[in-house]
Structures are given as C-alpha cells and as structure tokens.
C-alpha cells in the first residue's frame, strides 16, 4: 500500500473525526448551559440531581460511557442495535460527557460575576431573562473562554475514543492499516492530523478571544 492510498483511506476517517468534533460542540455547549442552571437551581433536589450527574460524567471514563450508551439499549431493554445507531451513540456519549464539563465551566463563570451587575440591571428595570442574556452571559463568555479552549483541545484528542465502538473515524482506520501493513506510517499521519487540527482550534479560539478584547 503506498502513501497516497493510506492518505486516501485516512481521509474519510478525518472527515468523520471532524464530524464527531463539530456535532459534540454544537450540542454540548448549549446543553452545558442548561445543566449549569440545573446545578445552580434554588430547588435543592434539582441541584443535587444535576450535581450527581456531573460528578458521574466527570468521574468515569468517557470510553465506558460510550459503551454504555451504545450497548445499554440492548442489555437493558433487549432492543436490537442497528448499525446506524453507532454514530448516534457516539454523539450522545460525547455530548452528555462534554456538557457536564462545560456546565461546571459556565457555573464558575456565572458565580464569579459581581452581584452589583445584577443589581444595576434590576434597578434599570431589565427582566431576569434580559439581565442574563444582555448583561451577564456576554461577560461570562469572555471570562470562561480560556477554560473552554482547554476543553475543546481535549475534545479533538478524545474523538479517537470512538474507536471503542469500532466507528470508522481516523484513529480506528489508522490502527487497522498499521496492523494489516505492519507500518508506523498511519500513526505518523494521524499524529500530524490531530496536531494540525488543534493548531487550527487554537487559532480560531484566539480569534474569538481577540474579538472580545475591546473591553476589560
């Protein structure tokens, strides 16, 4: 197998890796915000439930969570797993896991906001929703951006965990080719791919941070 063929085969995996990455971000960023609201709920029971959820998600391996999401329906309810569920299971697993991490980041950001900002908004007559969306959230986003960047970079590397469900993303393919052809080459290509991917992520996140630099 020549280099071009290896690249071509890895190429289709790269697209799938990028797919996992984008779907996870798009879904887990908003879900994380909702979970942080649950975690900060004034209702003690609700707060405890979300706290427990977050601690499970952060305290057990993501790979294990993926296996549970994928095989759970069969073992628990005897539902036959169809092939098309593989991708869905991966996205569900990643989103549930990453939303928990993002929830804690949102929470730390929201709790770090000075109470005076809420009070100033209240005096001016803003509703609670307006206060959160117009006054609090934009400042929270600026504050948490560095922590979010860390998570996003971890996510790029974590996408390789999809191999545990034999999903044909980049890393799974690289492993197969390496085993079949007894060559290191696919791993080298994979490493370069993840590295460049993360460079891009860093550039994009830096851009976003810069665009919020207009105030302190």
């Amino acid at each position: 197998m020549d280099f071009a063929t290896i690249l071509q085969q890895l190429g289709s995996g790269m697209l799938k890796t990028v797919g996992i990455f984008l779907w996870t971000l798009v879904l887990s960023l908003p879900l994380g915000l909702l979970i942080s609201f649950g975690r900060m709920s004034k209702n003690r029971l609700v707060a405890v439930i979300f706290k427990f959820y977050i601690s499970i998600m952060r305290g057990t391996p993501l790979m294990l969570q993926l296996l549970v999401v994928y095989f759970g329906p069969y073992y628990l309810f005897g539902i036959n797993i169809s092939g098309s569920y593989r991708f869905v299971a991966i996205i569900i697993g990643f989103v549930l896991n990453y939303a928990a991490y993002f929830a804690e980041i949102y929470r730390s950001g929201i709790e770090s906001m000075p109470i005076g900002q809420y009070e100033a908004a209240k005096i001016l007559g803003y509703s609670r929703t307006q206060t959160f969306i117009k006054i609090i959230l934009p400042q929270v986003i600026k504050r948490i951006l560095p922590s979010v960047t860390n998570e996003v970079i971890t996510l790029v590397k974590d996408t390789s965990l999809a191999f545990s469900l034999a999903y044909m993303e980049m890393f799974t393919i690289a492993k197969q080719i390496a085993a079949a052809q007894t060559t290191m080459m696919p791993f080298v290509v994979a490493a370069v791919f993840y590295y460049i991917f993360n460079l891009l992520v860093a550039v994009v996140m830096e851009r976003i941070e810069k665009s919020l630099d207009y105030y302190k």
């Binding site: 005076g116 900002q117 009070e119 100033a120 908004a121 006054i135 934009p138 400042q139 105030y215 302190k216």
Partner: peptide, 10 residues
C-alpha cells in the same frame, strides 16, 4: 447610583 458605578463593561 452606586458607590462603585456598576457600569456594564461590555
């Protein structure tokens, strides 16, 4: 009017 202004920084 607050002692420490509480303008919206953004």
């Amino acid at each position: 009017v607050f002692q420490n202004f509480q303008l919206f920084p953004h």
